[in-house]
Amino acid sequence: MMIGIALGLLTTAVSLGSGHGVVAVHAGPWTAWPKNGGLNIDPYARAILARSGEAPLGREEGVAFLAETDSDGAALDGRCEYRIVDPVPASRYWTIGLADRNGYVLENPTGRYAFASSDILRHDAGAFEILVSREARPGNWLSPGDAKKFIVVMRLYDTPFDLESRLDAAAFPKITKTRCA
């Protein structure tokens, strides 16, 4: 009996401690949980939200994608440098920023935590690239500060595309590791 209760609580702790829900969509390194923005959220995601204290975007407002790895599947490492290059799926506004795994912004010397579609520097043709590095970089520079691990959070506001269908990774930004210290 006691063992059963302990096992039950353990599986709860493990299943709620990692991830954001059961029903996810994937595109390259990006993952989103679009059902978390509405009433038909699954019970695990509901419990996870209650514990983490997150108040997700409503599905009508937009959707957040998280990347914990680069496009080659290697975990993002604060000692390495990365390039994040377009495209971004169609949306009215988007933002791309860094956070820790629990969703808190990272202390860093730039005082900048994200770039928005409205204030990012672009090439002549409208393309952009974001450089993630602890060292100062020209252009769109995001710093993970002293964090060893971090995630990239991309939010698409007022996005028309259908999250129920299969997503095309080519429509999402690529995250490429350029060097490691």
């Binding site: 096992l7 599986t11 299943s15 019970p43 514990r51």
Partner: peptide, 18 residues
Amino acid sequence: ATVLVAAIVHLVSVLLMP
């Protein structure tokens, strides 16, 4: 019985968490 208790505790705790 242990597995059954574990499953019930798991489901109840997930549903009660909110």
